[in-house]
Design a protein around this nucleic acid. Structure first.
Lengths: 107, 107
DNA sequence: TTATTATATTGCAATATTACGATATTATAA
DNA sequence: TTATAATATCGTAATATTGCAATATAATAA
């Protein structure tokens, strides 16, 4: 086949898998890194920072936006991208919960 | 193309992307969930729990093992799988660091 | 030895992802 | 209006992922 059997898993499991899929590429990790490294959110220069062509960067940004990892607002002729703290928290909590459960185990 | 331009990004960025790739599938999230839900690590019944054929489950387990998210030790004729707390910590710290950096920003 | 049981590997078809040139869109500037 | 600049979308080729039947391997049991 090739398609994931999405319907066989819970909504939560698919949701987390989609979040991780959005982060499962070095270019998208680099975009997150860059957004963290600059002071403001006016970031019309992401394309120049990455070693990829403009359409490719645009596609990666779209995936991060679809996963709610970043937010984009139009700022004149440029677009202002920011990380979405809510989604970051969501992922961190997921691992916090895992670690809590791991504590109460033998291993 | 189709292949990621791995060489264009830092070791750390590729490392994190690979960790997320290993978690970017609902079946693998479900495996992690299941490993957390059982008391011990003797888990020869993962195949029965998932809605996938045995070779498919075996393949997903292999990917989690390659990413160091789970560890497997031979336990007689069965194999005992456990989560690897070190990797879980690593990912949680990654998001902890992101959240810290986000705090020191406007947005 | 020959079953039996549990897990891994191989091979392949279906689908998804990645990357980019060409082109379109959108907003401002002249 | 006609540039110009920034970003998005389309189309397509190369590669990766997913899933499973068939088969192989490894460890114990009879």
């Amino acid at each position: 086949m090739g398609a994931s059997k999405t319907a066989s898993f819970s909504v939560e499991q698919n949701e987390m898998a989609n979040l991780f899929k959005a982060l499962a590429h070095p270019a998208r990790i680099a975009i997150v890194d860059y957004l963290l490294s600059v002071d403001t959110c006016i970031c019309g220069d992401i394309v120049e920072v990455l070693p990829l062509a403009q359409p490719t960067v645009s596609q990666h940004l779209k995936e991060l936006k679809n996963a709610n990892i970043i937010k984009g607002t139009i700022e004149g002729t440029a677009i202002c991208y920011c990380l979405n703290p809510e989604t970051i928290d969501k992922i961190e909590h997921h691992f916090g919960a895992i670690r809590q459960k791991l504590k109460n185990k033998c291993c």
